[in-house]
Structures are given as C-alpha cells and as structure tokens.
Amino acid sequence: MFKRPALLTEKNFHYCPGCHHGIMHRLLAEVLEEFNPEETVGISSVGCSVFIYDYLDIDWVAAAHGRAPAVATGVKRVKPDRLVFTYQGDGDLAAIGTGEIVHAAARGEKITAIFINNAVYGMTGGQMAPTTLTGQKTTTTPEGRNPSQQGYPVKMVEMLSVLDGVAYAARVALNTPKRILDAKKALRKAFKVQRANLGFSIVEVLSACPTNWGVSPVEALKWVDEKMIAYYPLGEYKTPQEGVE
C-alpha cells in the first residue's frame, strides 16, 4: 500500500519540510497510473514546482510564467487524444496567468489545471500572492495584507465555475488524511472529465508553505484549517450532470 508509485522518479523532492507539493506529486502519480501515463503530457510552470518534470516520469513541456494553459491548449489541439494537464501555483495561475486560465476555461479547453494555492509566492521569497489572505504578512506586505491598499484575495474556482466551458471545478486540501483521499478523488474526477471530453477541469489545492508562513509544519496544518479553509471553502463548485460518476 505504501510503495512508491512507479511514475515517481528516484529523484528526491527539493521541497521544504511540510510543503504540500510532495503530497500532491504523489497523488498525481497515483491517479495518472490509473489512466495511461504514457498518453499524458504535463505542462509545468514557474514557481516552486518548476522542477516537477524531474519527479514525474512522463512527457513534459515547461511553460513561461502564467502561460501553462495556453501551452496546454497548443499541445491538446495537436494531440487531442492525450491527457494534458497544467500544474500551476497561485502567482502563476491567479496573477500573471489570469488571462490564460480564464480563457482556456471559457473555451472549454479539454485540459485539467492543478492549482496549488498556498497564499504566498514561494520561490521568489515569500511575497504577496493574489490569494494571500487579508492581514497575512508577507515580504511585500510586512504589516499584513491591507485590503485598502492591496485589495482582496482572489477566489479562483468560484470565479471559473460560472463559465460555461468549465465542466469540473473543485477545491481540496491536504492537511488531513481524509482530505488527502478527497483530493485524490477530485483529481481522478477532473481527469475523467477530460477523458470524456466534457470540457475544462480544475482542482484547486489549498497547500501549506510553512517556510514562508513562518510556522512549523504542524502549525501549518492548523493554519490551513483556521485561515485558508475559512476563506476558501472546500468542495465541488461545478460537476457534470452525467458522463462521469
């Protein structure tokens, strides 16, 4: 039961202690193995997960910051039979790549977006993300995010779920074993939606970043509960009436 998914390479993750990218990579590997990994092309993005192609043994195309949904569109239009997904962080998907994600969703592009929301920019040094919570301290909001100056956090799956092109939109978290199982189910469903050509699918993953939150990995799990889920409710925001169970 606890054996390493064959799709994960031997390379050790470079992520910080308590970071949830590792869990998500493993879930992704497990779910892709249920489909056909050989038919899969992943689009990596810019952020902490920029080296994801070192960890998952599939074909990859590395995209510029924010552009993964456009790159995925190009791949999918050329290879409509492939399973194509993007793996993007909050800066990538919800700030610089807002246009690309919204329009890929609006077109009902048959791709799956995996959206890691940890409310902060990790790789560049803990700056404010579009999803940084009100009052949250980051290196560019040293006094805490102040809505009168920096506005409000962006709720991506809520926004995207109103688009007709979106077939599946869910928000999950990884801070309890039960939620990890739910996340896996959501991921599986998102890929099934793609396989059934029902439209665009997205899974937003509330993810811990103890390093940039300035808390311990254990406290970070609590922080996800108390701060993130409170603002970003979990659940399926859109799901197809039929076609997938």
Partner: peptide
C-alpha cells in the same frame, strides 16, 4: 487543421509553443 483566435498575442505565441512542442 486548427485555427484558434487566442485571447491575446501572449497567449497565441504560447499556444504556438505548445503545438510546436507536440511536433506540429
């Protein structure tokens, strides 16, 4: 073939990048 009107030139060139990466 496929013709796609993108949402911006930024998106268009990245779609080109994806299609080229897939061998087209």
């Amino acid at each position: 073939g496929v013709f796609l009107q993108a949402e911006s030139e930024v998106a268009a060139i990245n779609m080109v990048y994806g299609a080229a990466a897939a061998g087209a």
